[in-house]
Computed example of a mutant assay.
Amino acid sequence: MIRQQRKVPKPEADVPVRPSYQCANLRAEIDQVVWGIQAMNHKLNTYGVSIVERPKIKATKKLDLGGEQGKQIVYSETKLALRTHKKTFQKLADM
Rank of each mutant, 00 (worst) to 15 (best):
A93E: 08
I57P: 01
H42S: 09
P9L: 11
I30Q: 08
I73Q: 04
N45T: 03
Y47S: 06
P55M: 03
L26K: 12
L65W: 11
L65C: 11
K79P: 13
W35E: 12
I30W: 15
D94Q: 03
E53V: 08
I51R: 01
V52D: 03
N45Y: 07
H85V: 00
K10G: 06
T84Q: 02
E12Q: 13
I2P: 06
W35M: 13
G36F: 03
G67I: 15
N41Q: 11
A24Q: 13
Q32R: 11
V74N: 06
K87W: 03
E12R: 03
K10L: 13
D64N: 06
L63S: 05
Q4A: 04
D94H: 00
I30V: 15
K79G: 09
H42V: 12
K10Y: 06
L92R: 02
V17G: 04
A59F: 12
K58R: 04
A81N: 00
K91N: 03
K58T: 10
H85C: 02
D94K: 09
K86R: 12
R54K: 15
I30S: 14
Q38F: 11
V15L: 06
I30H: 10
R18Y: 15
Y21L: 08
K61T: 09
E53G: 06
K56Y: 11
I57V: 09
S76T: 14
E29G: 12
S50R: 05
S20D: 09
M1T: 15
E29W: 14
T60I: 07
K62N: 01
V52F: 01
Q72T: 05
L26I: 14
P55D: 01
T88C: 00
Y47E: 06
L82S: 12
K71D: 08
I30E: 15
S50V: 12
M95T: 04
V34T: 14
I37A: 04
V49W: 06
A13C: 11
K7S: 07
Y75K: 05
I73R: 04
R6L: 10
G48Q: 05
Y21T: 08
A13P: 07
L65T: 10
K43Y: 09
I2N: 00
Q4C: 09
Q4I: 03
K7W: 07
